[in-house]
């Protein structure tokens, strides 16, 4: 081992765990889930800088492969805030506090799209997908799992047996890819993600066709774990809601394809709660 390698290693060792620990303690930890296009790392960097500037504290984004991991960390208080789906919010409402709801297309609501490959010209409703391969996004997703199963149940179908095979892609964007490549003959996707992809990656959405659009549900909420101080909650809420007021914030919102964040009403999620109860009642 030469001197240069040794120095480089020493620097790496000193830079990582201990220093990171110190920073983590001080930082606000925000969990992100694939309810939006969370794979744009340069955007996340800019957004974090913006939030740090607004709340005057270090911000650390935490990303995981599934909704459940983020939820678990949130419930275990390893995260302070998280942008999650309405469905887990409804399930764990008691331990969470609604802080903000995104506004897209002028309303704090979104829908679930039933999509099929663009080459499929026949399918007119979910019933035409009987015996096909269907892609869900995440078992904790409303638009990508709960709603399509609820819809099938409403049609007197057993969602567990209706399709020949189902699988999870763990992200809405990948639902579009899976259906677009014909790997799945159908999929349920977050309307906000589909519309955003339509803008930034039209080559993906052009390979899919929207067959059905669900009723509106409360948009994917940003929540705080229990035990977050009022000051912390307020400063973070103010930072999010104030994004539409500043030019830098508007620029970030544009990249998110959002109009802004609003504080939101708990009743927005009543629809999801109803579906959840209906499905739980069935099983």
């Amino acid at each position: 081992m030469d001197r240069r390698t040794f120095l480089a290693l020493a620097a790496a060792v000193s830079a990582s765990p201990l220093c990171a620990q110190a920073q983590t303690n001080a930082a606000v930890r925000i969990g992100l889930s694939p309810v939006f296009l969370d794979d744009q790392l340069s955007f996340l960097n800019d957004w974090r800088d913006y939030l740090q500037g607004r709340i005057g504290r270090a911000v650390r984004f935490v990303q995981r492969g599934s909704y459940r991991e983020i939820m678990d960390m949130l419930l275990e208080q390893k995260l302070d805030f998280a942008w999650i789906c309405g469905y887990p919010y409804v399930r764990h409402k008691a331990k969470l506090r609604l802080m903000a709801v995104p506004v897209s297309d002028g309303r704090p609501q979104y829908r679930s799209y039933l999509i099929v490959p663009a080459s499929d010209r026949q399918t007119g409703s979910i019933l035409d997908l009987r015996g096909k391969v269907f892609a869900y996004s995440d078992p904790d997703s409303n638009s990508g799992f709960l709603y399509p199963r609820y819809a099938l149940m409403q049609l007197k179908e057993n969602p567990d047996r209706f399709f020949a095979k189902t699988f999870f892609t763990w992200a809405h964007r990948k639902i579009v890819e899976a259906v677009g490549s014909n790997l799945a003959q159908g999929g349920a996707v977050d309307s906000y993600v589909w519309e955003t992809l339509q803008i930034y990656h039209p080559e993906l959405t052009v390979r899919t066709r929207i067959v059905e659009k669900s009723p509106y549900f409360g948009h994917t909420p940003v929540v705080a774990r229990e035990g977050v101080t009022r000051t912390e909650f307020d400063s973070m809420q103010e930072a999010l809601l104030g994004m539409s007021q500043s030019i830098a914030g508007q620029d970030l919102l544009k990249r998110l394809n959002l109009d802004g964040f609003v504080s939101g009403e708990d009743s927005l999620f009543d629809g999801i709660a109803r579906m959840m109860r209906a499905l739980n009642g069935r099983s």
Partner: peptide, 12 residues
């Protein structure tokens, strides 16, 4: 189980 060309080789 899965193929790079699902059009030619659909799942199952």
């Amino acid at each position: 189980f899965v193929a790079t060309d699902p059009n030619q080789y659909p799942m199952l």
